[in-house]
Computed example of a mutant assay.
Amino acid sequence: MATATQARRTNKAQRAKSATTGQVLALDAGNYDLKFYNGHGHPKAIRSVRFQLPQGRDAVSYSDASPLIELADGRRYHFGAQAYKYRRQQQTVIENKVELARLHLYACLEPINGSVSEFPLHLYLSTPDPGRYEEGLQEELLGLHEFCRNGIDFQVDVQSVTVEREGIGAYYYAQTQGLIPDNGYTIVIDIGGGTWLTRLVDADGEVIDENIMDRGGTYELAASISFDRRLTDGLGTTADPCIVMDGFRVGHIYADTGLSWAGWLDEYLDPWFRGIFQTVKAQYTPYMLRVTRFLVTGGGSHLIADRLTGRSLFAVMGDPQFANVRGLFLLSSEQQLCMTTKSA
Results as ranks from 00 to 15, higher is better:
140 E>D: 04
157 D>M: 01
163 V>H: 06
131 G>F: 04
184 G>M: 12
137 L>V: 03
168 I>E: 09
181 P>G: 10
152 I>N: 02
156 V>A: 04
166 E>D: 13
184 G>I: 11
150 N>P: 09
147 F>A: 02
142 L>W: 00
168 I>W: 01
145 H>E: 09
153 D>L: 11
178 G>S: 06
174 A>F: 03
134 E>G: 04
183 N>E: 11
128 P>A: 10
169 G>A: 06
154 F>E: 07
140 E>K: 15
169 G>T: 10
171 Y>M: 01
173 Y>H: 14
142 L>S: 09
138 Q>A: 12
137 L>G: 03
155 Q>K: 15
165 R>Y: 12
154 F>Q: 00
173 Y>G: 00
149 R>N: 10
148 C>Y: 03
133 Y>L: 13
182 D>K: 13
155 Q>G: 07
169 G>K: 07
147 F>L: 12
147 F>R: 07
180 I>A: 06
149 R>I: 08
144 L>P: 00
172 Y>C: 05
139 E>N: 15
135 E>L: 05
129 D>Y: 12
183 N>W: 06
166 E>R: 10
130 P>T: 02
167 G>C: 07
132 R>C: 06
128 P>F: 02
134 E>C: 08
157 D>C: 01
156 V>H: 02
151 G>Y: 12
130 P>Y: 06
145 H>G: 01
164 E>I: 09
165 R>W: 05
171 Y>A: 10
149 R>V: 10
182 D>Y: 01
145 H>T: 03
173 Y>V: 06
141 L>R: 04
135 E>S: 13
177 Q>K: 15
175 Q>E: 13
148 C>S: 13
146 E>T: 14
137 L>F: 10
179 L>D: 07
141 L>T: 00
185 Y>N: 13
155 Q>Y: 05
145 H>R: 02
186 T>H: 02
135 E>Q: 15
142 L>M: 14
133 Y>C: 02
179 L>E: 13
132 R>A: 09
181 P>R: 04
141 L>N: 03
138 Q>V: 08
169 G>Q: 01
174 A>P: 10
186 T>N: 02
148 C>L: 00
180 I>D: 04
187 I>G: 02
135 E>W: 00
131 G>M: 02
156 V>L: 06
141 L>M: 08
135 E>Y: 07
157 D>N: 14
167 G>N: 06
186 T>L: 04
168 I>M: 13
149 R>P: 01
178 G>L: 07
131 G>R: 09
177 Q>M: 14
184 G>F: 08
165 R>N: 10
175 Q>T: 11
134 E>T: 11
174 A>W: 08
142 L>R: 13
163 V>P: 03
186 T>A: 01
139 E>F: 09
134 E>W: 06
